[in-house]
Write a protein that binds this DNA or RNA. Structure first.
Lengths: 103, 103
DNA sequence: TCGGTTGGTTAGTCATAGCTTGCGTTAGTC
DNA sequence: GACTAACGCAAGCTATGACTAACCAACCGA
């Protein structure tokens, strides 16, 4: 869906974040990922389904294997989100510094 | 702790994200936040504790109220994290485009 | 054709954490 | 000194979701 909220929900989970980080280095198959993680292939597969459903990763079949890769565009959306977020917080910080108190 | 992983764990939660977004506009007290959210003051307070423990928000006492504000530095860390993340994924994407297959 | 590999699916378990309720505390106000 | 408003804390409930185990399907090589 490439919606920032859904993307953040998905990548907010620690294990999923590790998976995406690993895929950002280079694309990999399910069993490759499971080898480095303390969870079963099934769990990895389920995480990948979540990541795929929000558009964070893409997959392509290569024989019996399935190669998963990060979609840079999805990361760009998250990047833009925090960019704007950070800018706003800076402005609010500056405002708060001027007006010692209000309300 | 201003550690990217802890920050992302904290901001990965939907309600907490809303709270931080609201605080990024301008600092607010617990009851102010609770007014706009479908949860109790207590729940908001608990979320703020989590956010505070990872350094995403700061608080200062003003009489009986407690004014919470976003720490722009924490958002900067997250921003930098996804910035690097995105860059890496772009590189991986370019690599994958060159080498059609490997392993 | 058959065994081995890979991976998606489903059912079911279990722990985590988000939330509410109730109480105690502190700081302003009359 | 009482009264109230604003929070934090602790206990307990509950639902969500992360995970495993078992099964099935597809593809490949001998």
């Amino acid at each position: 869906m490439t919606n920032a909220n859904a993307l953040l929900d998905a990548i907010g989970e620690r294990t999923r974040r590790k998976i995406v980080e690993r895929l950002a280095e280079r694309p990999a198959a399910v069993s490759d990922l499971a080898r480095d993680l303390p969870i079963t292939r099934s769990a990895v597969s389920q995480h990948l389904q979540v990541l795929k459903s929000v558009g964070l990763v893409t997959d392509r079949a290569v024989g019996t294997r399935r190669i998963y890769a990060v979609d840079p565009e999805a990361l760009a959306i998250i990047r833009a989100y925090f960019d704007a977020f950070w800018t706003r917080s800076l402005a609010a910080f500056a405002d708060a510094a001027e007006q010692p108190e209000d309300t």
